[in-house]
Amino acid sequence: MSNVPSDLKYTKSHEWVKDNGDGTVTVGITEHAQELLGDMVFVEVPEEGNEVSAGDDCAVVESVKAASDVYSPVSGEVTAGNEELADAPETINSDAFGNGWIFKIKLSDASELDGLMDAEAYTALVAEEA
């Protein structure tokens, strides 16, 4: 069973969300998700300033065998994409919850965070899918 930090929120589509406490969140894909996809070879991050709605596909992670959309868990404005991933996509494999973050969003509706899963619920989801 892979690591599921308790201080993060999660989505059914295997994104994690970190509340930065300043009206912004950081988003990435979970350790479990990167395990399913395998060695990352490319990541397409969204451009700063893009307006997104919860559920929009706004990034793509690509491994040798699959390309998968990353959906925005919340609505708001993209404040940053992780440009480091362009040269080092493997960071998602080695540090999914840390340096492997994909984009940051300034929340337009903070209450959306309440609709996300906590670590316990996400752990249960992963167990169920296995």
Partner: peptide, 12 residues
């Protein structure tokens, strides 16, 4: 770069 292609990416 096969992940761009239809046999993996299907409708996208």
């Amino acid at each position: 770069l096969q992940a761009r292609e239809q046999h993996i990416r299907r409708s996208k």
